[in-house]
Computed example of a mutant assay.
Amino acid sequence: MSVFKQALVFTSFGVSDVRARQASLDASAKLLAERFPAWDVFQCYTSNFIRKRLQGQGVLIPSLPELLKSLASQGYSRVLIQPSHLTPGEEFDGKIVAAAQEAEGWFSAGLMVSRPVFDAAEDYKAVLSAILPEFSLEKGEQLVFLGHGSPHHHNPVYERFQQVVDEHRLPVHIGVLEPSDTPNLSMVISRLKQRGAQQIMLAPLLLAGGSHVTRDMAGEAESSWKSQLMAAGFAVRTRLQGLGEYPSFRELYVSKAQKALALSGWSK
């Protein structure tokens, strides 16, 4: 008698920092395993650079194509891919959707790709509700989030998120790290000055607190966001935790997977 096997694949860009990886990606995968006991949960990374770096440290994490081939060879009948990616940008389309299309037909009961955190209109408010309680702002302090952005074309998610924030009249400002995308740091600084801000809490709108956080956001170099904000006249304190370190944010992945299963007609 054959055993019906189904896999839930938690797919991330990846992070090489051990603490950040365990506190965000591993913690999210553990939660998915707890909430979906009928599914075998696996992890893979889409960044070849990070995978090679980890391999040099003796940590072997497969790419999505490698993992899908392995699952097919192990006799899995059904696969649900849950991306950890925040937006449906280049990485999601080029590394996840493309790999899933390549593997279409390998699994007798189907292969499905769930959606990123920022996807539907209601997701923006859901993210706000999940993360804002984690921040205690001092009187007069304003919150600046550093997102990643897309390297080759504009990703409108961050501007849409800012619109939702502004509709709620919150002292929150969102910018992106990629110099070719917007809103960039200079735009954020302009917003802050228009609102008469003096004190800033700077925090990552990134899943894991890796080098983008410790170097590009909060580093001591003149090029870091912290240094540039201070040079612009603001008092700055930093919050280094990635979004994946907040239990309320990790629950969003559970919700996304549940929604995907409901749409597919597959049982939980």
Results as ranks from 00 to 15, higher is better:
residue 128 L to R: 07
residue 46 T to Q: 03
residue 160 R to N: 12
residue 74 Q to K: 15
residue 82 Q to Y: 03
residue 69 K to W: 10
residue 79 V to Q: 00
residue 152 H to Q: 14
residue 79 V to R: 00
residue 43 Q to C: 13
residue 49 F to H: 10
residue 106 W to C: 05
residue 101 Q to P: 01
residue 142 Q to T: 13
residue 19 R to M: 09
residue 102 E to A: 12
residue 68 L to S: 01
residue 147 G to I: 07
residue 29 A to E: 06
residue 68 L to T: 11
residue 33 A to D: 06
residue 67 L to M: 10
residue 155 N to W: 00
residue 85 H to R: 10
residue 90 E to M: 12
residue 120 A to D: 12
residue 50 I to A: 12
residue 102 E to T: 12
residue 111 L to E: 03
residue 69 K to A: 15
residue 80 L to H: 00
residue 145 F to W: 12
residue 157 V to K: 01
residue 73 S to G: 05
residue 51 R to E: 07
residue 37 P to T: 13
residue 153 H to Q: 13
residue 113 V to G: 04
residue 78 R to Y: 08
residue 73 S to K: 15
residue 134 E to D: 08
residue 119 D to K: 08
residue 61 I to S: 10
residue 72 A to F: 04
residue 51 R to S: 08
residue 82 Q to W: 02
residue 140 G to V: 04
residue 38 A to I: 06
residue 134 E to P: 00
residue 157 V to M: 12
residue 109 A to I: 05
residue 115 R to G: 02
residue 23 A to V: 03
residue 102 E to S: 11
residue 30 K to Y: 11
residue 36 F to S: 02
residue 19 R to A: 15
residue 78 R to L: 13
residue 32 L to S: 05
residue 94 G to S: 13
residue 118 F to Y: 08
residue 111 L to F: 04
residue 105 G to K: 11
residue 78 R to G: 01
residue 21 R to F: 12
residue 66 E to R: 02
residue 155 N to E: 15
residue 41 V to G: 01
residue 142 Q to Y: 08
residue 30 K to S: 13
residue 62 P to N: 12
residue 42 F to S: 09
residue 40 D to L: 08
residue 160 R to M: 14
residue 111 L to D: 01
residue 107 F to P: 00
residue 21 R to C: 09
residue 28 S to M: 11
residue 36 F to E: 01
residue 54 L to A: 09
residue 106 W to E: 02
residue 156 P to Y: 10
residue 56 G to E: 15
residue 107 F to Q: 00
residue 80 L to C: 02
residue 19 R to K: 15
residue 73 S to V: 11
residue 86 L to S: 05
residue 32 L to K: 03
residue 126 A to G: 02
residue 112 M to R: 15
residue 130 A to K: 14
residue 52 K to F: 11
